[in-house]
Design a binder for these strands. Structure first.
Length: 811
RNA sequence: GCCGAGAUGGCGGAAUUGGUAGACGCGCCGGACUCAAAAUCCGGUGGGGUAGUCCCCCGUGUGGGUUCGAGUCCCACUCUCGGUACCA
């Protein structure tokens, strides 16, 4: 046996064994309890960073633990391979995006394998594989046929020099990042997915994830979906047929409406501006409509009146720069007395302010200072006077609805998802535009529409690719040259891992076996978009009959960022720690151990090089200790009766550690504490050994359990030591240790004694001592008496097996 | 502004349910081994008082409260981080 811990040799041996025996090849075993453990797949940037190492170590530790618990575990890995960096690299280095991406995948796969993660590599795929995106195209066509995918005009960032569309991240201070030219907003026809059809379900289902997903993530998704209940009201316009529709959450304030405000982009505003020079000038005056001017509450009257739906009163209609076209109908009923923005606008433009809500407690609202936005009691509201806001809300809504002028509606902040990207390195949109037939999907037999990887991204698409016969009428038609948002690929990869090689369907029965993902692990930065889109896609696939269940991820763990010197590791801060040299120097196990030990998974991790050293030392000491006690391997079971007090105490510690580590692995995932407990155990074991009391049977029991507890965390060391000690089987396949209740029992206990809540003494007492006896011993104790002398004992509080608190009062 | 999370030694962090605050690790200090260094091992390490080991006081962002007892619960506040923002 190697006396010194040599990580390289150890890791080689373990990894070879796993590979040769295909230990991580997951097979469907109907009836067996399955566990699908998934870490968010990486973008193949070229090298792993610490965030990846952390993410994948957490995932692998959980997966290996579940396996020891007897679960049938699936842990796959793949590549989120489409995206902008590949196109940039292609431009900068004159390589092809596909080649660059696949080289990066190669390099990162090797790094992941070096870290010993137990992935089922047979299931690996990259989202740029045509066999993968083919099914994305297929599903998209299904959605199109169901009306869930549709086209509409939307604004894009257009770089007039590079003649290209830019992503939001590529627009820096209003200019194209590459050309430096001012970016224009252009209206372009784009594909959208009707995620708003699922808004209610996406929101409601969050409640069922409570306790399984971090609360923070649920709250962020709720806010993002942004449900609000209110009333849609139609105001008649003087001299016009079409009414003006507004949305309000406060119909109780309807009687306080004194004017109407429209967004600058509202069709009525646009129409009037053609004949109204003052309005036209206002709209084209950047000082009055730009984002910076919004705080100034600029506006302009339209010379148009709306009629109050209940009183018929004439209300002037204005354009106001703070009204958003994207929310609601782009128009609001303005109640300056009870909305702060309306109040500011009214002040600025001398519009009337009419109070219709009074504070419920009878106090006066100071409307000269600010709007009164609380709920209260209706006043100046005719027949509604005296009603509470809640009653007024209902009564006014009822009356509007009876008169056909309004009804209750639910609004969402969530917009439909624009999935068109005018990029090359992405999944082609499988659609054909025919002058005669309109938009026609590519027939299923012609899928996938393959991206020509040999074509540099800056080269024009060949005419014979762009122009094809219309599948319907046969006339020449144009292919859609856009690609999908890369979030589309990452919205269903978790399902495809189950059926990775299905070539006649997107998914098959295997997906029903494995899904949902039992534990998903990834960065908090994906709390909204990725996790919302993936939930949406799961529901789409469910409604296609492809998967069971309503949610893709049963449990979610969001790991914190890895910081260095208080900042996120990044090139611009120059504080990136490359995992590679650390693995080189200390070995994979030390790096794995450290990222788990340094902090709980959900916390941000402040990187420290010296911390790694500590973990390395622990493994070395452990290795050496095992080496020095090899003879224990042949020892028989521990005879509990033959142990002295110190040995008994150590054995108790062992079983406490087992209990703690089990709890951590099962529920809390605070692996730092489980590691600390094992470090303590090793320290105690070494002290026992120094005292000459390291009975082989006891040492064997400890080492066997420790190796099992450490197997998910430092699998290589555990694998080799397990074999070298000659224990049965392999570490990986061992059952997780169970704590022995009998060993946890104590005959003598340490009892803390407090007087008035302050610790004054500690007593060693028999565990089965009677209450009377205990009280007598406590009160007879000299240290206790120093604080009870001359006072009256009011009462004595006992926490069994732990603590006694003597409450005294001056006599 | 709003929503969420958090604040514990020089540092990362412990302390399932209110019950010995500071486990474990890093760093630092002292010692052993060594010609020396590295490695390794041993001891110490919240602040203060009394100065030896016995003991006392203070201490978990700030100020209040509940309780026999509060890092943990309640109220108010400060700061940090994450998200989001004229959402009618």
């Amino acid at each position: 046996m190697q006396e010194r811990y040599d990580p390289e040799a150890v890791e080689q041996e373990a990894q070879e064994y796993w590979r040769e025996n295909e230990c991580f090849a997951a097979k469907e075993r109907p009836g067996a309890r399955k566990f699908y453990c998934l870490s968010m797949f990486p973008y193949p940037s070229g090298r792993l960073h610490m965030g990846h190492v952390r993410n994948y170590t957490i995932g692998d530790t959980i997966a290996r633990y579940r396996r020891m618990r007897g679960d049938n575990v699936l842990q796959p890995m793949g590549w989120d391979a489409f995206g902008l960096p590949a196109e940039n690299a292609a431009l900068e280095r004159k390589v092809l995006p596909g080649a660059w991406t696949r080289d990066n995948i190669q390099a990162m796969r090797e790094q992941l394998q070096r870290l010993g993660f137990g992935y089922d590599w047979r299931r690996e795929f990259a989202t740029c594989d045509p066999e993968y995106y083919r099914w994305e195209q297929w599903l998209f066509i299904r959605l199109f046929e169901k009306g869930l995918a549709y086209r509409k005009k939307a604004l894009v960032n257009w770089d007039p020099v590079d003649q290209t569309v830019l992503a939001n991240e590529q627009v820096i201070e209003g200019r194209g990042w590459r050309s430096g030219a001012p970016v224009e907003q252009r209206e372009v026809e784009q594909w959208f997915l009707r995620i708003t059809d699922y808004a209610e379900e996406l929101l409601g289902a969050l409640d069922h994830l409570e306790g399984r997903w971090p609360h923070q993530v649920l709250q962020m998704q709720r806010n993002w979906i942004g449900r609000s209940e209110g009333v849609e009201i139609r105001f008649a316009l003087e001299g016009r047929e079409e009414p003006l529709t507004v949305f309000t959450t406060r119909p109780d304030t309807l009687m306080g409406t004194t004017y109407m405000a429209l967004a600058p982009g509202h069709p009525i505003v646009q129409e009037i501006s053609r004949t109204n020079k003052g309005l036209h000038d206002f709209l084209n005056h950047p000082a009055q409509t730009s984002e910076e001017s919004v705080q100034d509450r600029e506006g302009h009257p339209l010379g148009l009146n709306a009629l109050h739906p209940l009183t018929g009163e004439e209300l002037p209609v204005w354009v106001a720069n703070f009204v958003l076209m994207e929310y609601g109908s782009g128009a609001v009923m303005s109640v300056p007395a009870h909305d702060q923005r309306d109040w500011e606008f009214a002040h600025h433009h001398g519009l009337p302010i009419r109070q219709v809500i009074a504070p419920a407690d009878g106090s006066e609202a100071d409307l000269d200072a600010e709007a009164y936005t609380e709920w209260g009691v209706l006043v100046n509201s005719g027949a509604f006077d005296g009603l509470s806001s809640e009653e007024g809300y209902a009564a006014i809504t009822r009356q509007l609805s009876e008169q056909g002028r309004g009804e209750s509606v639910v609004r969402y902040r969530l917009h439909d998802w624009g999935v068109s990207r005018q990029r090359r390195w992405g999944c082609p949109v499988p659609m054909i535009h025919c002058g005669e037939c309109g938009v026609v999907p590519v027939p299923e037999k012609d899928l996938p529409v393959v991206l020509d990887e040999a074509l540099p991204p800056e080269a024009d698409l060949p005419e014979d690719w762009k122009t094809v016969p219309c599948p319907k009428c046969g006339r020449l038609a144009q292919r859609d040259t856009d690609t999908f948002d890369t979030f589309v690929e990452s919205s269903w990869y978790q399902a495809r891992f189950c059926s990775h090689d299905a070539d006649d369907a997107m998914l098959d029965e295997r997906a029903r076996y494995w899904l949902p993902v039992d534990q998903y692990i990834g960065g908090i930065e994906h709390a909204i978009l990725h996790l919302l889109y993936a939930r949406y896609f799961h529901k789409l696939m469910r409604d296609e009959g492809l998967v069971d269940g309503d949610e893709p991820f049963a449990h979610l763990l969001t790991q914190g960022m890895v910081l260095k010197d208080g900042h996120k590791m990044s090139k611009s801060w120059g504080n990136v720690v490359d995992p590679e040299p650390l693995i080189e120097r200390y070995g994979a196990d030390t790096v794995r151990l450290f990222v788990l030990f340094a902090s709980p998974p959900e916390h941000t991790l402040e990187w420290s090089d010296s911390g790694v050293e500590g973990c390395s030392r622990f493994l070395k000491r452990f290795w050496r200790f095992v080496h020095q006690h090899r003879e224990c391997a042949s020892a028989a079971g521990v005879e509990a009766d033959g142990l002295d007090a110190q040995q008994e105490e150590l054995r108790r510690k062992l079983h406490e550690t087992i209990r703690k580590a089990g709890h951590v692995a099962e529920q809390r995932h605070t692996f730092n504490t489980a590691i600390a407990a094992n470090m303590e155990l090793l320290n105690d074991l070494m002290h026992l050994s120094e005292a000459g009391k390291a009975e082989p049977a006891l040492v064997r029991e400890c080492l066997e359990a420790m190796l099992r507890m450490l197997t998910p965390i430092v699998p290589h060391v555990s694998h080799v030591l397990w074999r070298e000690l000659g224990f049965d089987g392999v570490a990986l396949e061992q059952p997780w240790p169970e704590a022995d209740e009998a060993a946890l029992q104590r005959s003598v206990e340490q009892i803390v004694v407090q007087v008035n809540g302050k610790v004054r003494a500690q007593l060693e007492l028999a565990a089965d001592i009677s209450e009377d006896e205990l009280q007598r011993k406590v009160l007879d104790n000299a240290k206790v008496q120093r604080f009870t002398e001359g006072k009256t004992v009011v009462r004595i509080i006992q926490v069994p097996h732990k603590l006694v608190n003597v409450v005294v009062r001056d006599a």
